[in-house]
């Protein structure tokens, strides 16, 4: 160590003073790649194994469900639909075999009156996925706006909005959704989704309000106000982009619970109704068939479980990507 000191002492004062710049020179930082926050988050997300697996599985399920029956003019790859009866294609058991691999005529079997169960389950999946995503988007939008307004403006606006939110929270979700579902025509899927979206936003509103409350005390918001920035510009340009982590993570959780909610509603009879089908409706119809035709009961449940599980894992991966501190060691 003493050798180092002697060497440095022989440099000129000026050179040695510059050599001990505590701050890094931006110019030689040009050698490093410049990472925006978005890039950092993306990298962390793609490293999360659970989330990646879940993302793959979910994509596969969604693709399978939507392409099997065709989109618009493009025909699907599954020859049977969920309306026709197929009495002459063998017994009702599933023809799917894992080893040796064979799909057969009816991989998920046939239901009690002879419809192809694979097509039924795919249709149910389609309905549930569409509803879940629409609900997710609607609820996120409503919740974010209400939460942001309440958290930023405070005062009487906050009181009103939060009391309204509390009112909606107090009523058990399933109950409220049941009433609204009953009131809306079960045949219009989009209307149902709209109605559901209007009741599940409360959790998001609370969380966004909390984030906005703490963000608005940060100094860059003070600086923006001191410059004279208008309120809504502050909210949309400064506060919400910094709350995006919470919003996105909760949006995925919302979607997961929306799936469960919709299937539960359909199970009870207040959601999607015949002649349309939903995974929850399928389970409700065949719950007593567990001993005689178990496949009718298992397949829809497994699909609900798989979709919800995947969405939850993706949400967890997103949460870790946005806030890497949150890892148990």
């Amino acid at each position: 160590m003493s050798d180092d000191t002697t060497n440095e002492e022989t440099m000129s004062e000026q050179q040695s003073a510059e050599a001990f710049e505590v701050e890094e020179n931006l110019e030689d930082a040009a050698g490093h790649r410049s990472y925006s926050q978005g890039t950092l988050i993306r990298r962390r997300f793609f490293r999360h194994r659970g989330a990646m697996v879940a993302l793959t599985v979910l994509t596969l399920i969604v693709l399978m469900a939507f392409t099997s029956a065709g989109i618009g003019p493009i025909p699907g790859w599954w020859p049977k639909n969920f309306i026709d009866l197929y009495p002459n294609t063998g017994g009702p058991e599933p023809t799917l075999r894992l080893w040796p691999f064979r799909i057969g005529e009816h991989p998920f079997g046939k239901n009690t009156i002879g419809k192809d169960y694979f097509a039924l389950v795919m249709e149910g999946t389609r309905k549930s996925v569409i509803i879940a995503f629409v609900v997710g988007i609607i609820a996120t939008t409503i919740g974010t706006i209400i939460g942001a307004a309440a958290g930023y403006f405070r005062g009487i606006i906050e009181s009103l909005l939060m009391r309204a939110t509390d009112l909606v929270i107090i009523i058990p979700l399933l109950v409220l959704a049941s009433v609204l579902g009953r009131m809306s025509n079960g045949n219009n899927v989009l209307l149902l989704a709209l109605v559901l979206g209007v009741v599940v936003w409360t959790g998001m509103a609370r969380l966004v309000r909390g984030e906005v409350l703490s963000l608005r005390e940060r100094e860059f918001v003070h600086a923006a106000r001191a410059i004279g920035t208008s309120h809504w510009r502050i909210i949309f340009r400064h506060i919400l982009p910094n709350a995006i982590g919470t919003i996105v993570v909760n949006a995925t959780l919302l979607i997961a619970s929306a799936i469960l909610l919709e299937t539960a509603l359909s199970f009870l009879g207040f959601g999607v109704q015949s002649p349309q089908t939903s995974l929850g409706l399928l389970i409700s119809d065949y719950q007593s068939a567990l001993t005689t035709r178990p496949w009718l009961f298992w397949w829809p449940g497994v699909f609900i479980l798989a979709i919800a599980l995947c969405v939850n894992f993706i949400g967890d991966g997103l949460r870790d990507a946005f806030d890497p501190r949150q890892q148990m060691d």
Binding site: L260, T263, G280, S284, L305, A308
Partner: peptide
Amino acid sequence: AFMFFSLPVFWFAVLLKHYAAIQ
């Protein structure tokens, strides 16, 4: 814990009825 979140309660209840009770 994710299993618990993602489980549709009604489906699980029917399964319980079958396995935990009948069997």
